[in-house]
Design a binder for these strands. Structure first.
Lengths: 225, 225
DNA sequence: TTTTCCATTAACTCTTTGTAAACAAAACCA
DNA sequence: TGGTTTTGTTTACAAAGAGTTAATGGAAAA
């Protein structure tokens, strides 16, 4: 699984819990941001735009449910995943939490395994629905079939090639910095050599046979037909 | 799985529970109808002809078991899936429930995951026997006889092989991730080794004799003739 | 009960893919 | 223009992933 570039915000007032959870998520390759109270959580959420927000219910300065409600009221967080941590398996709280628009909850105490696997599965569930077929000027990129079509021809790309092309084509004309490409396709903490991107770009150009990727020297690449 | 067209009726007298369950099913793409008591459940069942009916045992104005009995007595609901919710793990009630013709039961409290996965697996279980014969490019897959026909030839597949092929062929061209295959064919909580899928794929390819399953490395498999 | 068939695992091989390294070619800048 | 930086290309190699085969234990059929 690539957890690259997946940002997770955890808010809990107990530093120990925060540490443990953070440790386990970082180990899995996620980028973790922490907050110790409700207001800090909201602030950090705005600053970092995380993919998943994990909120303890019991927190000073706005509890988890309140934070969730505030965030959900904003368009930016309408589709962000939110998960609650409940100290006790307080049925009432669980229900309230879910109805206010959280996507899942975990009751503490929880084993790191279970915690991590819950996070995984929640993110996976959502990612799947994110894949949409792209159509740009006669080029079709279909993640469901994992096929690129151009001029009635099926072009088979390897995984990384496909992911790279998909990223570029997701915003035609927009320039993606090399850094951006790295963190989106390879992951935030994967270190690869300078020429790796170029080699993949080359293979894509070769396979497609049309010049659809433009180099912007000193900056990055953009997709354009 | 395409849950769009799947209608689920939930009957429970506690609005909170109803909300939580509905929320989770809707999130999975099911169409959900709710009822707050036994009689309402029967009425809504008649109106909407759901694919699955989830009944709380303890309900005012006819309890779950009574509702089940009444519905089962009607030809229209002879084959509808019925699932019970039991507040306590009351063994006696569970048994009674099942003998009156329910297909499964869940004891509350239940986590959203478990609940959703039970619903999934119940529907999957039944859909399988719902036996729609698939016809793709001269290949006929008939779940009723457990037989695959190709080029006028009958090919006998073992159960797992058949289920796997059926899944892949249900959406020709679409790539199924290994994970997806595992959870659809083997079940959500079965753990099998890495090579198990490959071995089954191999047997299918061998028996059919035509290359109809394409490997997408690092991603999964797809059916394509 | 014996036999056959099936699902799975393990061990191994084969293939594809990703990356590094080394060098060539551009583009940039003075 | 010559030197410098950035990108393109090629080749080679390691590792990931998938294919293959045989063996095992269990279930179903005979």
């Amino acid at each position: 699984m690539d957890n690259r570039a997946t940002k997770i915000l955890i808010a809990d007032d107990e530093p120990d819990i925060l540490e443990i959870l953070k440790y386990n998520l970082v180990k899995e390759g996620y980028q973790v941001i922490t907050a110790q109270n409700g207001e800090e959580a909201i602030e950090k959420a705005r600053q970092t735009a995380p993919d998943l927000i994990i909120l303890d219910i019991m927190m000073p300065r706005k509890n988890g449910v309140e934070v969730c409600e505030i965030l959900r009221a904003q368009p930016a967080f309408k589709d962000t995943l939110i998960m609650f941590l409940t100290a006790l398996s307080d049925e009432a709280t669980q229900i309230k939490g879910l109805t206010t628009g959280a996507d899942d909850y975990i009751s503490k105490p929880v084993s790191p395994q279970v915690f991590v696997s819950k996070v995984h599965s929640l993110l996976r569930r959502v990612r799947k629905t994110e894949t949409k077929t792209l159509q740009v000027d006669g080029l079709t990129i279909d993640p469901e079939r994992f096929v690129v079509q151009y001029g009635g021809r099926d072009i088979l790309l390897a995984k990384k090639e496909f992911e790279l092309l998909y990223l570029l084509a997701s915003k035609p004309g927009r320039v993606f910095l090399r850094n951006e490409i790295l963190s989106q396709v390879w992951g935030i903490d994967v270190i690869v050599g300078d020429r790796t991107i170029d080699v993949h770009i080359r293979k894509i150009r070769q396979k497609i046979g049309v010049d659809c990727i433009t180099t912007v020297k000193g900056v990055g690449y953009k997709f354009e037909l």
